[in-house]
Structure formats: structure tokens, C-alpha cells
Design a protein around this nucleic acid. Structure first.
Length: 578
RNA sequence: GCCUCUGUAGCUCAGCUGGUAGAGCACCUCCAUGGUAAGGAGGGGGUCACCGGUUCAAAUCCGGUCGGGGGCUCCA
């Protein structure tokens, strides 16, 4: 796309202009790297002092002035020696130059007073940059080359566009993202909380959030039963024997918590459910006639995450995976994978996510299992995505050492991608636990095992769900589906009668019998994003009618109550928004 | 963990250059209340995150501790 390439040049050039502005203020600054990124650009500096907000404004002003100077971006190719000489005071640049392979062309770009080691490309001159279409957004610390052993640099992030209108649109989108922040909405609508003093990264589900969760879980369980899964429950802790056998203590221990001593044995909180599922598998002899086995569990696991990466519901230390393991014979694997994929897509559709992309990861350098196994597995994954006409990206060598996988990323209402579903082969655990089944020929053989999480974790999924809908959930998920609002105290009885009827029909309903006035009641229900309000007074009570108002503000006055029950039943059944 | 910003009532926030705390919402009480986004009055509620320092005097300045936000792969 031509426009994208242009924007890339604009953003990259902006970062050079920013570097020039920063060097004007701090002549001794050491510059690191400054690429274009999604929506903008950044540049990393080593500065004599931390940046303040006022500095940002000044850098912006200077950038505008530089842009107005109409300076050309001049490209020049130099020898390695010339480059080393030119950047002798710039240690980060020197490091980059020294790391270039022999024979690599080294190019410089100069605009105005600033020359940078740069591959380009850039705009012709700064008149192609729009001084009204960029904004510096934030300052952050960033390790040189992303490695925490390296010095911490100061990174300035900016956004840049071709027109001031594009910039405005983008800034508005940022505002929208902020408005939908699940942490903010979670507090506002009383859905969940986190209590630092009781432990970071641990989620408390409030009644309204828990309502939603229980609807999700019920739906999840029913769908699993309908699709040939069995539901199992397993413990939260297991002795070190289990984790030694599974290999977690060797390869995953940095994510596991310290053991609990019970009767002089070490027990570990589970970071994964698989070893437990395997023990159930091994509790009896399995015949090929028993396979495939599909076992699902809403399994709560605990994993250590560094404090700095914890983020609301999206990155936590304790969470419930909607986990399942499929254990089958080699010739069942194709059908099983296809079914899992179809099942996932159906579930995502039900929750209102239609834009889904697949990421297929194949065999890495270091891996277990033989090639034939890998090939067969990858083949089944490929065939499944192709059969479902899913757009997919191939990540050659990106699989885990124990098997290939498909990840599904969903796109939310704001166009952001979230990695949720993972369907992952495991050639390691069946081996480690010596899982077998007896085949037609009476011989014990190794089954295939696939891990799969659809929603990923209920916590994270809930966070994404809140942001996707801005907490205005579809009726079937709304914690309160109907608010009955009598226009005056005289009609409280009628309101209460409606409430009881709806409750009996399994509808989540509340009647506002407070002493608030009508307008305030409507406002409260509106702010709670309750899908339907039933406003009732004399006319309604006389003929068993309701006056309907939905959260969009659309009204239907004097509707027979029976019609409303039928209507909301349909909406819930069809999982529509309103 | 590290860099940076930040921490005032349940929530959202004000409190300028130091002179021992304020608003709106929520909550409680009373009054009012019949038609589609806030009826009115009064009241309760804060050791200004914590510890230490400077000062006659600290929410305010300084240091530390503990939380929270943003960032730490996007390769000149």
C-alpha cells in the first residue's frame, strides 16, 4: 500500500527531526535508535537528566520549527572507517556499526544539522512532514536493545500522520480506548476488584462480574457437552514427583511458586492442568476404542509474573483456564483438529467476535518427537485452517519444543488484536508420563495429545469482553437484563409483580423501588448499561402493559408484557446485542 | 525487576510560591415526588499512602519505603 509506505517514511523522518530537536536542547545526548512504529515513532536517548513534561512541549516546538525549514533528507554512503570516525562520540551507533556484517552498505541521512546512521527510507524534505499532524505522547524507560542487562535509555514516543485530521482521529481513538479500559469500567460498574494488600494480580469477582462469569461458564459447559467433551475437576496442588515427571520443575520453575510443605513432602501450586489430566488418563488401561478422549476443565492455575507486567484482568498471577486435552490415535488427529477449530470459531462468534486470524507455528530448531510426527501434526493444522477458510500467518520454526500449534487472534471493536485461543500439540508429556493405548493389533502405542484453551483464561477473556463492548454487554451476558421502573410509589406493586414474573422466566431483573424520581432512575439504569428498562404507571398497570426503553434510548410504549417476555427471550436465545 | 510519572473522603478530583483540609457524586436523615438521563435541604465521613528529615509551622520542600499508571521484541 502506497499510503502505508508514505506514512512509514513520514514517521521515520519524524523520529530524526525529534532527535535533532533533542540534540539542540542536550548537545551531549547520546542517540540510540529511532524507528517508525505502528501509529508513530520513537527515539531512544541517553540524556544528562530525566525528561520533564515541559521538555516535551519544547521538543515539539523545536520540531515544528525544523519542519518549517524545508530541510532535505540527504542520503550518503560511507565506508565503515568513515562511519566509525563520524560517530566516535556516539557509543550506541558505534556498537551498531561494529555489529554490521562485513560488506554491508552503510548509509547516512542528514537533515538540517542532524546526521544519523540510517538505512532509510525518508521523505524528500521536511516540507513533506505536517507540523500539525504529529504529537509527542509519552516518555518511557527502555533498555538498550531491550535487554535488562543493558543501560536504561529514555524513550520518547510520538504519533505522526499525514493530515491533522488523521491525527485527530487517532487521538480520539486513544480517548475511546481509555474510556473502555476494563479496569475503569470494572470499578464503575462494580464488576471486579484487585486488592494489592491481599496480593497483586489476584482477581475478586463482584456479584455483577460473577453473574457474567457464571453465564459464560454455563454456556461453555453446555457447548462442551454438546461437542463431545467430558468435564473434569482436578486438584490445585501436586507433589514434586508430578512436576519432576512433567518436566515443569526443570523448564518452567521460574513461573512457579515456592512449594508448600505437607508431611515433609513438597507440594506445588499448579501452573498448568495437563499433568493432572494425564493422571486421570493413566488411571486405567485405554483401548483405541476409547479414543478420542476430550477432557475439559475450568482449571485455576497460578503463575509467577513479574510485578511490572501485571495489568488489570489481562495479566494476572492466578487465573482460570478453559483448558482441555484431546487424546487420540494418530489417524484421528486430522478430524479432531478440524473439530476443535470449528468449535472455537463457533464460540467466538457467539461472543460477538467475527474477525479472527490464525497463526500457525511449526518446528523449531530444538524439539522433541520425530519428524514424521511433526509433519503429520502440522499437516492437520494446515488442513484445518484451510478448510475453514481462515486467514493465517505461518510462523516457520515458531512452535514450542514439544509441538506445533495454532493460535487464534481476535479483533475487537476498536480494531485491536488479542491472542486468545491456542491449540497445541504435545509430543513431550505423553512420552514423559508413558501414556499408551492398546491398538487393534494388541500392541501398546503412544497416543497424540493436544492442549487447547479457547477463551484462554476467564479473567483475561472478561477483560477483553468488557473493552470490546465498552461494558454494554449483549442481553444474554448482561448482569442485569431488565430494570423495572415505576413512575410513582403507587405502582410499586405492579413493578414488583413484573419482576417476580421475569425472575420465574430466568431473566435477571431488578425493580427500582427507591424514592428517586423517574428521571434519576432512568439515568441510573442507563449508567449501569442495563439493556432494557420497563417504565410502568397507571396505563400499564391497568392492562398488563409495559413501556419499553432500551439503553440506546429507543422506546416502545404500551407494549403487552407477554410480548416483551417473548421478545427478550428471543434476544437472549439468539445472543444479539439488543 | 528496571526507568519514568503518580498516591488527598467509598468514587472522580481541587488545594498557587509551606500557615495544621475542600467540591461533585455516593452514603444517612428529613421534605418532595405520576411519565423517559440528576427534585430539595441537612448530616456523617479524611492520622492528606507510610517512615524519617528541614522548618516556629509540611498535604505542600527533601530522603527513603510501599502501592498505582505508562514503558522496557517492533532491530541504524
Amino acid at each position: 500500500m502506497e499510503k502505508d509506505e508514505k506514512l512509514l517514511k513520514v514517521r521515520h523522518s519524524m523520529s530524526h527531526v525529534m532527535a535533532e530537536a533533542v540534540l539542540e536542547i542536550f548537545p551531549t545526548a547520546k542517540v540510540a535508535i529511532g524507528p517508525a512504529i505502528e501509529n508513530g515513532f520513537y527515539y531512544d536517548f541517553e540524556l544528562p537528566r530525566p525528561l520533564k513534561t515541559e521538555d516535551i512541549a519544547e521538543i515539539e516546538e523545536r520540531m515544528k520549527r525544523i519542519i518549517k525549514g524545508k530541510f532535505p533528507f540527504v542520503r550518503k554512503v560511507v565506508s565503515r572507517e568513515q562511519a566509525l570516525e563520524l560517530f566516535k562520540d556516539q557509543p550506541y551507533k558505534l556498537e551498531l556499526i561494529k555489529a554490521f556484517p562485513e560488506g554491508e552498505e552503510i548509509s547516512l541521512y542528514t537533515q538540517s544539522t542532524f546526521t544519523d546512521l540510517c538505512r532509510g527510507p525518508h521523505v524528500k524534505d521536511t516540507s513533506e512532514l505536517n507540523p500539525e499532524a504529529f504529537k509527542l505522547l509519552s516518555v518511557a524507560g527502555a533498555y538498550w536493545r531491550g535487554d535488562e542487562k543493558n543501560p536504561m535509555l529514555q524513550r520518547i514516543y510520538g504519533t505522526a500522520w499525514q493530515t491533522s485530521k488523521d491525527l485527530r482521529v487517532y487521538l480520539n481513538r486513544l480517548k475511546e480506548v481509555e474510556k473502555r479500559d476494563h479496569r475503569k469500567l470494572g470499578k464503575q460498574l462494580d464488576l471486579f476488584s484487585i486488592h494489592e494488600e491481599a496480593g497483586a494480580g489476584l482477581i475478586y469477582w463482584h456479584p455483577k462480574g460473577a453473574r457474567i462469569r457464571s453465564v459464560i461458564e454455563d454456556f461453555w459447559r453446555n457447548e462442551h457437552f454438546k461437542n463431545g467433551y467430558e468435564i473434569i475437576y482436578t486438584p490445585h496442588i501436586g507433589k514434586s514427583w508430578l512436576w519432576k515427571t512433567s518436566g515443569h520443575l526443570d523448564f518452567y520453575s521460574e513461573n512457579m511458586y515456592a512449594p508448600i510443605k505437607i508431611d515433609s513432602a513438597d507440594y506445588y501450586l499448579k501452573p498448568m492442568n495437563c499433568p493432572f489430566h494425564i493422571l486421570i488418563y493413566k488411571s486405567s488401561m485405554r483401548s483405541y476404542r476409547d479414543l478420542p478422549l476430550r477432557w475439559a476443565e475450568l482449571g485455576t492455575v497460578y503463575r509467577y509474573e513479574r510485578s511490572g507486567v501485571l495489568h488489570g484482568l489481562l495479566r494476572v498471577r492466578g487465573f482460570t483456564q478453559d483448558d482441555a486435552h484431546i487424546i487420540c490415535t494418530p489417524d484421528q488427529i486430522g478430524d479432531e483438529i478440524l473439530e476443535v477449530l470449528r468449535f472455537s470459531l463457533r464460540i467466538w462468534k457467539a461472543f460477538g467476535f467475527k474477525d479472527i486470524k490464525a497463526y500457525l507455528a511449526t518446528k523449531p530448531e530444538k524439539s522433541v518427537g520425530d519428524n514424521a510426527q511433526w509433519d503429520k501434526a502440522i499437516e492437520s493444522l494446515k488442513r484445518a485452517v484451510e478448510k475453514e477458510n481462515l486467514e493465517y500467518v505461518l510462523d516457520e520454526g515458531g512452535g514450542a519444543f514439544y509441538g506445533p500449534k495454532i493460535d487464534l487472534k481476535i479483533r475487537d471493536a476498536l480494531g485491536r488484536e488479542w491472542q486468545m485461543t491456542t491449540i497445541q500439540f504435545d509430543f513431550n508429556l505423553p512420552e514423559r508420563f508413558n501414556m499408551t493405548f492398546v491398538d487393534h493389533d494388541g500392541k501398546e502405542k503412544r497416543p497424540y495429545m493436544v492442549h487447547r484453551a479457547l477463551l484462554g483464561s476467564l479473567e483475561r477473556f472478561f477483560g477483553v469482553l468488557i473493552e470490546h463492548y465498552g461494558a454494554a454487554f449483549p442481553v444474554w451476558l448482561s448482569p442485569v437484563q431488565v430494570e423495572v421502573i415505576p413512575v410513582a410509589a403507587e405502582f410499586f406493586d405492579y413493578a414488583d409483580k413484573l419482576k417476580k414474573t421475569l425472575l420465574e422466566k430466568g431473566i435477571r431483573v431488578n425493580a427500582d423501588l427507591s424514592s428517586n424520581r423517574l428521571n434519576a432512575k432512568i439515568r441510573n439504569a442507563q449508567n449501569e448499561k442495563i439493556p432494557y428498562m420497563l417504565i410502568v404507571g397507571e396505563k400499564e398497570a391497568a392492562d398488563n402493559l409495559v413501556s419499553l426503553r432500551d439503553r440506546e434510548g429507543t422506546r416502545k410504549n404500551l407494549m403487552p408484557f407477554g410480548d416483551f417476555i417473548e421478545m427478550i427471550g428471543e434476544k437472549i436465545k439468539n445472543k444479539v446485542l439488543l
